[in-house]
């Protein structure tokens, strides 16, 4: 890591000048995107600077409680984003509850497995490992979970007459909604499958690139990347299944009715 090149503010300003190209294109072609573009860039800078300071602070504390707190905040933001994705949302706090449950389960299972088996930092709560790992996992969890949640909610809405036709003939809710569940989980898992198939050929994954830039031997870097891909695949599967089952449970009741009245 000695040959890590430190970036100066001037280097960042150079790269930011590329934004001017985007903005010029937006103005010339009347894409109406320049304001959004600038706003997104400013958000990105502010958010990343803030998390830089927060991480430095938490790393310095090296305290399990502080580590847990920041992980919970990150998970809560992911759950909120996930609950906000579907075109039709749950009334009240149900969407947030469903998303939180699925995010916590997927993150705990996969990050817990990695921290207690493969990575095993000392101390086990070393925030450098725990926070980074959870951050990467939450990215995949958000992606898989929000696609699946949207698939369940919009699928049930689209198929309401066929689901109710089956219920009316005596089918169990579980079997009447199985096609919707299958399709939603399948769609939720596509991003991680694409990510794994493209890794190394079409894209150099971020973690690996980061480690190589930081001076790590490529063969060491790919081992980390392979481990992470498996963790991400596991997290995607757990979040997709759990968000699908939790959302379907909320869309039904003990009398196995289809409760679309619970959606806005």
């Amino acid at each position: 890591m000695h040959d890590m090149i430190s970036l100066t503010p001037f280097d960042l300003a150079m790269a930011a000048s590329l934004m001017a190209v985007d903005a010029a294109a937006s103005i010339l072609l009347r894409l109406q995107l320049h304001r959004q573009l600038v706003w997104a860039a400013v958000r990105m800078i502010v958010q990343l600077s803030a998390i830089g300071f927060v991480l430095r602070f938490v790393f310095a504390l090296n305290n399990p409680l502080a580590t847990l707190m920041i992980i919970l905040v990150m998970a809560a933001v992911a759950a909120r984003e996930m609950a906000a994705r579907p075109g039709r949302r749950f009334k009240g706090l149900a969407g947030l509850t469903v998303a939180s449950g699925a995010v916590l389960l997927a993150t705990t299972v996969t990050a817990g497995l990695a921290l207690t088996s493969a990575i095993r930092p000392v101390p086990w709560y070393d925030p450098k490992y725990a926070v980074s790992l959870v951050g990467i996992i939450l990215g995949s969890v958000l992606n898989a979970g929000s696609i699946t949640l949207d698939g369940v909610v919009s699928g049930v809405w689209r198929e309401k007459s066929s689901i109710e036709a089956q219920l009316g003939l005596g089918a169990a809710f579980h079997s009447a909604t199985l096609p919707v569940l299958r399709e939603a989980v399948r769609r939720g898992l596509l991003p991680i499958i694409n990510q794994m198939s493209a890794a190394g050929l079409i894209t150099l994954p971020g973690i690996m690139t980061g480690q190589i830039l930081a001076g790590v031997d490529p063969l060491e870097a790919i081992k980390y990347q392979i481990l992470l891909m498996f963790l991400l695949a596991g997290a995607s599967g757990v979040v997709a299944l759990s968000v699908a089952y939790l959302a379907l449970a909320r869309l039904s009741d003990p009398r196995q009715r289809l409760r679309l009245d619970r959606l806005v």
Binding site: A165, G168, G170, A172, P179
Partner: peptide
């Protein structure tokens, strides 16, 4: 509930197909 509905099925005015 599903045993009940099997004993007294409901056919909606607009049929659904799956």
């Amino acid at each position: 509930a599903h045993h009940w509905r099997a004993s007294i099925p409901y056919v909606a005015a607009e049929s659904g197909w799956w």
